[in-house]
Amino acid sequence: MGRLLVPLGLGFAFLYLPILLMVVVSFNDSRMVTSLTGFSTRWYASLWSNAPLMEALFLSLRIAAVAATMATILGVLAGFALARFGRFRGRGGFAGMMAAPLVMPEVITGLSLLLLFVALEAAFGFPAGRGAGTVAIAHATFGAAYVAVVVQSRLSDMDLSLEEAAMDLGARPWRVFATITLPLIAPAVAAGWLLAFTLSLDDLVVASFVSGPGASTLPMVVFSAVRLGLTPELYALATVLIGAVGGALVLAFVVLRRRDRGASLP
């Protein structure tokens, strides 16, 4: 263990120094991201009044919430079927279809979904045009794959006799699911939702393909801003997002840990 501490420390430095840099620079007064001049919160104020960026942020949050919820419904159903239905007909194809988005290059997912939406519009007039709705559908599709994996692996770890015991004690199948299965996989479901949410919030490539005029998501706006030049405003945005996500994760971790520990104490 001792001599492994050095690579571990270096690895963490590699992961965290860029983040630290962004946080520091976001509080720097200078317009340049490369020289420190003094403490200031002006980039946060400027971020708040940057209407296109803020609009894009709220649009992305809305899309992410809808997509993550849809992905969670699909993923829980799929993960449950894969973990509990044994070998049903077409299981192989279904499992492959559920898992494929995990390894699919984003450009392919984006391109193929765009071509589908174009074809659907040509054939049925629906969806008419593309925008937040089509982005949410695309995000729900690959988000569902992640939720399904998380849920399925949690269900396979779970002692099957818990559900059998509930059945044996008189619970009908849907009550077994509601009173035993769902509460026990709840942390996995929550983690899956959060994963789908951040994946949606983070996605540039798929959204660039399937979005339409007037529906620019946050990564799309950030991407064009970066190409025009780096500003401390973007680092302020990064600090806010990292703070929110990191805070939520650490909080969830601490709560889960305390709950586990509370359970094992009298």
């Binding site: 983040i19 962004m22 991407f223 990064a238």
Partner: peptide, 15 residues
């Protein structure tokens, strides 16, 4: 770090 905006973390490397 994986959970925090990947695009913005790339911009850190530009700086």
């Amino acid at each position: 770090p994986f959970w925090a905006s990947f695009l913005l973390r790339i911009t850190a490397w530009i700086g």
